[in-house]
Design a protein around this nucleic acid. Structure first.
Ligand SMILES: NC(=O)c1ccc[n+]([C@@H]2O[C@H](COP(=O)([O-])OP(=O)(O)OC[C@H]3O[C@@H](n4cnc5c(N)ncnc54)[C@H](O)[C@@H]3O)[C@@H](O)[C@H]2O)c1
Ligand SMILES: NC(=O)c1ccc[n+]([C@@H]2O[C@H](COP(=O)([O-])OP(=O)(O)OC[C@H]3O[C@@H](n4cnc5c(N)ncnc54)[C@H](O)[C@@H]3O)[C@@H](O)[C@H]2O)c1
Lengths: 211, 211
DNA sequence: CTCACATCGTGATATAATTAACATTTAGGA
DNA sequence: TCCTAAATGTTAATTATATCACGATGTGAG
């Protein structure tokens, strides 16, 4: 790794490359070129090489990349050579769906706790977990050394819930509430704003309408 | 509207401004400056003005923006002066959560159909809707003139399900399956890749670890 | 009425990201 | 062994986005 200023888009693509390489590897393919990766994930070959070049030289000129090697490297870069315990706060519709999702486990994420403050939800089973009161957040986070929290509470509760997570020691939050969280500098937040994503679509539909 | 090349980031921010303005308007505030908007949503004042400037002059120099006016304009730009019927394909964990979400309706989206190909799911009630067989997609899409499809099927079915939507006349797809869809040029696709979002977090956690 | 102030709109500037170009390196065959 | 073809890694050019700086314009006090 040479630089410290990596575009976020590069990380996103790296994640996609890595998942694509898993499929390729499963097919038993040994070697792959930047062009084939590009083809598979819908970007340019130059982009693939550039993205990888931020982190080292993983290929062989004239040949391409060894699939298993490159897969291992991309996973390593993303931190997926280790497993990541995570917790979900808000056991509503969305939180429940996330807890039930097997795909996270396959990528290295283990949901080790689900929390809610609604008495009718506490105690409910979700997969192998039982919904716990938010008072238990700190205990579980410390016990499993959880660094990642997933926020699926209503916007009005998001700030408070985020603080519970941060006070417990969580350093990264995936926030689904449509609100801007302000957090200490050492905490990473990424928002997933589904309404906004739909609105990108309506914007483009309108643009085209006018032409 | 003057230009045709609007950064996607601008659209995303516009959506956020618009939601912020709704809150501000609810508080009865009449006028707001770019600085106050910036403060509220976590960007720079210049960014706010630049974003708005792509679409016209909505403010008054020395004064700021009229909240109601600007809200109306931002909604209009995003196409939210009309309602948008939409359908969900895949009535699993995530699809069910989306159908049950009230926030979409508040922003102008009406889910008018949920589809699945699993017989045990078909006929199940989700809010005021009943899960339908995918054979009904075309009928419902045409009947309601649906332009937006939300894809929440497994990756292995995503391509097929997307084709059903496109053949029925859908022009925009919000895709949750972790796969790259290839679609005709007149169809807009945006992916929501939750694993990737988590991996952005692990990447940053690792970066910090090393310092 | 004029001035001081606040704040917008925008052209200029700086920064960032993508694309393109190419020199370099490897594999493999004549 | 040498030559060709393929595909990388990297530098340069281009394009896109964000920031800055400031002229223009409206408000309200004196
Ligand atoms: N469901 C969706 O499809 C969807 C779509 C877009 C955005 N979102 C956003 O995701 C979030 C969750 O949505 P949802 O549909 O699951 O809502 P929901 O109402 O089904 O679930 C929210 C859960 O959070 C719990 N909660 C409330 N305050 C809490 C607190 N302080 N601590 C712990 N738990 C608390 C509630 O008891 C409830 O169980 C919301 O912010 C929503 O705006 C959801
Ligand atoms: N649930 C999550 O939290 C989550 C997180 C990240 C990504 N995703 C992605 O979202 C998608 C849905 O996830 P999920 O957890 O809801 O899965 P799920 O298995 O609960 O639901 C998928 C549904 O799609 C239906 N289906 C399958 N093939 C179909 C077809 N051809 N036509 C119509 N319906 C079909 C299935 O019967 C099932 O009901 C998947 O692609 C998954 O990778 C989900």
């Amino acid at each position: 790794m040479k630089a410290l200023k990596i575009p976020e888009a590069t990380i996103v693509r790296l994640s996609v490359y890595s998942r694509f390489l898993e499929q390729v590897d499963k097919k038993g393919i040994v070697t792959i070129s930047s062009g084939e990766i590009a083809e598979g994930v819908g970007v340019s070959p130059a982009q693939v090489r550039k993205d990888l070049a931020y982190f080292g030289e993983f290929g062989t000129r004239g040949v391409g990349y060894n699939v298993k090697d490159l897969l291992r490297h991309t996973l390593k870069i993303l931190g997926l050579n280790a497993r990541w315990p995570a917790v979900v706060v808000g056991a509503g519709n969305l939180g429940s769906a996330l807890v039930s999702y097997r795909g996270f486990r396959e990528r290295g994420f283990d949901i080790v706790g689900v929390f809610d403050n609604d008495l009718t939800k506490i105690g409910k089973r979700l997969m192998e977990l039982e919904v716990m009161a938010t008072e238990k957040i700190e205990q579980i986070v410390k016990q499993h050394n959880v660094k990642i929290g997933i926020l699926t509470v209503p916007a009005s509760s998001a700030k408070d819930a985020a603080n519970l997570l941060i006070n417990a020691g969580v350093k990264a939050i995936l926030n689904f509430a449509p609100i801007v969280l302000s957090v200490p500098a050492d905490v990473e937040v990424r928002d997933i704003d589904l309404s906004t994503r739909l609105e990108i679509l309506t914007f483009h539909l309108c643009l085209k309408e006018m032409m």
